[in-house]
Every structure is written in C-alpha cells, then in structure tokens.
C-alpha cells in the first residue's frame, strides 16, 4: 500500500472520527500496514464542523498531517466547501449525496456518491451512517481488505450495536460494489453537483 492521504469531513455527531478510526485500525491492526490519524473539531459536541485526517502506508508514517488528500470523504456541505479544493489531481471524492452538492472540482477527479444517511435510516438507525460510508469507501477505493475493515468495525462499536453496524457496512459495501465513478463534467446530470453562478 503506497502512502495514501485521506480526509473524512462532516459535522459532529455523524461519526466522522469513528469512521477514520475504523479505517486506521483496519490498516494498522488487521492488515499489518501503518496508519496515523489526527482530528480537528470545533468546541461543539454535535453539529460543529469536524474532520479527521488519516494517513495509511506500508512504511511508518512520519509527517502527521494531510496536505493534499488522495481520498476525500465529505458528509456535509460545509465540509465540501472547505476541503474540495485540497483534493489531489486524479484523487477520489466520496460524497453523501443527499447532504452535499459539490462544485468547483478539478477535471480529473473521480466522484462517487452514496445516500449513506438514507440507507442508515432504512436500517432503522441514522447513527450508523458512518458504517455505511465505511463500507462504501472500502468497495470503491480498493485501498483496504474488506475483511480487515469488517473486523475493525466489529471491535470499534459497542457490542449491542455490532450486528447493526456490520449490516450497515455490508449495505454500503454492496452499494459501492456497483457504483460508477462520475466525472466532474457529468456531475450535474447525476444530481450531485450544481453549476456555480
């Protein structure tokens, strides 16, 4: 696994940090690679802007911060507005399609979208949207072994919610397995972007 910079961003309460913990744990504990996670959050416990930076690599991670993410996951409009411009050329953008309209994308970015919150609500608990997102991430990026991520989900959530989170992971994974990347040019047709006036 070559050094990959990831940013997961949204608002507090969406499980942004936990999704980065799950991915980092999968890489460093269950897949034998290295992972370093740092986080930024506002003073609010819920609702404030929140983002996690995760770097995974085959060799020890030295520099702790993400400068140009290879993969950016945005789960709120604010997060999208703030971080989309940082995305590396040729990078991957993953959006919560019901909550985010992206704009001003570089030409060669691959965009994947998923209604993670809606899927989580169908499962009966909006709270598990992050596990849906982690499943989707695992399927579309091919960065981590799915079984490593499953194990990380299982041991990162309270026992009473383990099955529900694993189910949420599978739903996101299945959704991602058939998802097609959309190029920025055709985002508007796909309903995940708007042209800025």
């Amino acid at each position: 696994m070559q050094l990959t910079e990831i940013r997961v961003a949204g608002f507090g309460g969406q499980g942004v940090i936990l999704s980065a913990i799950v991915l980092g744990k999968a890489a460093s504990i269950y897949q034998g690679a290295f992972a370093t996670m740092t986080q930024n959050f506002g003073p609010e416990a819920r609702g404030g802007a929140c983002s996690a930076q995760l770097i995974v690599s085959d060799s020890p991670v030295l520099y702790p911060y993400v400068s140009q993410p290879d993969i950016l996951v945005v789960m709120s409009q604010e997060a999208s507005n703030r971080f989309v411009s940082e995305l590396k050329d040729g990078g991957t953008l993953i959006v919560e399609q019901d909550l985010v309209r992206v704009s001003e994308l570089k030409g060669n970015v691959k965009v994947y979208s998923v209604p993670a919150t809606r899927i989580a609500e169908e499962l009966g608990k909006r709270m598990v949207l992050n596990s849906v997102m982690v499943g989707f991430f695992t399927a579309v990026t091919h960065l981590l072994e799915p079984d490593a991520v499953r194990k990380a989900v299982a041991d990162s959530v309270p026992a009473s919610f383990r099955d529900l989170n694993l189910k949420a992971f599978e739903r996101g994974f299945e959704y991602g397995a058939t998802a097609q990347a959309v190029s920025p040019q055709s985002l508007e047709d796909a309903g995940v972007a708007y042209a800025q006036e």
Partner: peptide, 9 residues
C-alpha cells in the same frame, strides 16, 4: 499536542 492527539497502533 500532535503526539497527544495522534492516533496510532
């Protein structure tokens, strides 16, 4: 602060 708030194995 970085070492304190940095998460690793």
């Amino acid at each position: 602060e970085v070492v304190g708030h940095m998460t690793e194995k």
